[in-house]
Simulated scan of single mutants.
Amino acid sequence: MHVLVVEDDVELTQFIQKGLQSEGIGVSVAFDGVVGRSMVNDRQFDVVVLDINMPGLNGYELCAFIKQNWPAIPVIMLTALGSLDNKVMGFESGADDYLAKPFAFKELLFRLKALARRHPSRAPLPKRLELLDLAVDTESHQVWRAGKRVTLTAREYALLEYLLLNQGKVVNRVDLLENVWDVHFNTNTNVVDVYINYLRRKIDHVEPKLLHTVFGVGYMLRAEP
């Protein structure tokens, strides 16, 4: 599970982030609504936690934006505005749950897990992923390049599938560690780079090259050189 926390209280955000990471949950944070909106546009989260009073874009507006574009992503309002009118406004903007401050971390954790179970936000995989002459069958995990079968290990396949799902976008090492290796903390391991090289040898033995390094940023699959 990966949670986005949009909250302008830095100390509270760090408290939530540390607590969730200790439970093995991935966390991304934004300190204002505009940045939060950009992050939701860039990747899919399992649950979004929103404060209401934030600079740039308030929680009601951001919640409405999320629900308009990704209605399956559950949203929980986490705010000091605990009046009935505030709760009604939160639910009318599309919130799935509402937790008033101050709160017990265990209650937040319970509600997040309950929302993730009730509202699986991840769309089902297409049966086939393609990029030029690279093709992947997501049910059998078979891979072809230029009409020939490519044999991948389970981890190489998971890496290729994630890159294909994000083809045309730069994916950084942290995203790959979280989504392919399920590692939700900072690490200096070079395992991503090692497996990128493994994958490159197997799928880029012909032209055009599809797996590109964006130096200082990450990696991407694209058809253009």
Rank of each mutant, 00 (worst) to 15 (best):
G59Q: 02
Y60D: 03
E61W: 01
A64L: 09
A64D: 13
F65G: 00
I66P: 08
N69F: 03
N69I: 04
P71F: 06
A72I: 04
V75Y: 00
I76E: 00
I76Q: 00
T79P: 01
A80L: 05
G82F: 06
G82T: 05
S83I: 03
S83Q: 08
S83P: 04
L84M: 07
L84P: 13
N86T: 02
N86H: 15
K87M: 14
K87N: 10
V88P: 04
V88A: 12
V88I: 15
V88Y: 07
F91S: 01
E92C: 06
Y98Q: 10
L99M: 11
A100M: 02
A100L: 00
P102W: 08
P102K: 06
F103K: 01
F103W: 06
A104T: 03
A104H: 15
A104M: 10
K106S: 13
E107R: 09
L108P: 12
L108I: 10
L108G: 08
L108W: 11
F110H: 12
R111H: 06
R111V: 04
L112K: 08
L112E: 02
L112Y: 01
K113T: 12
A114F: 07
L115H: 06
R117K: 14
R118T: 01
R118K: 09
R118D: 01
H119M: 01
H119C: 09
H119E: 03
P120W: 10
S121G: 15
S121E: 00
R122D: 03
R122E: 11
P124E: 07
L125K: 12
P126Y: 09
P126T: 06
K127Y: 04
K127D: 15
R128C: 05
L129W: 05
L131V: 08
L131M: 14
L131P: 10
L132I: 04
L132G: 08
D133N: 13
A135V: 15
A135R: 15
D137C: 07
S140E: 13
S140W: 00
H141A: 11
H141C: 12
Q142D: 09
V143Y: 10
R145I: 01
R145Q: 11
A146L: 03
K148V: 07
V150R: 08
T151S: 15
T151K: 13
T153K: 12
A154L: 10
E156F: 06
E156K: 03
Y157C: 07
L159A: 05
L160Q: 11
E161M: 13
Y162R: 14
N166K: 14
G168A: 05
G168S: 09
K169A: 15
K169P: 04
N172L: 04
D175R: 13
L176M: 06
L177P: 02
E178C: 05
E178R: 15
E178G: 04
N179E: 14
V180L: 00
W181L: 12
F185L: 11
N186D: 12
N186E: 12
T187M: 07
T187Y: 00
T189E: 07
T189V: 03
V191I: 15
V191W: 03
V192D: 07
V192F: 08
D193N: 14
V194H: 11
V194W: 05
Y195I: 09
Y195A: 10
Y195F: 15
Y195L: 14
I196P: 06
I196C: 02
N197Q: 14
N197Y: 10
N197G: 13
N197R: 15
Y198L: 09
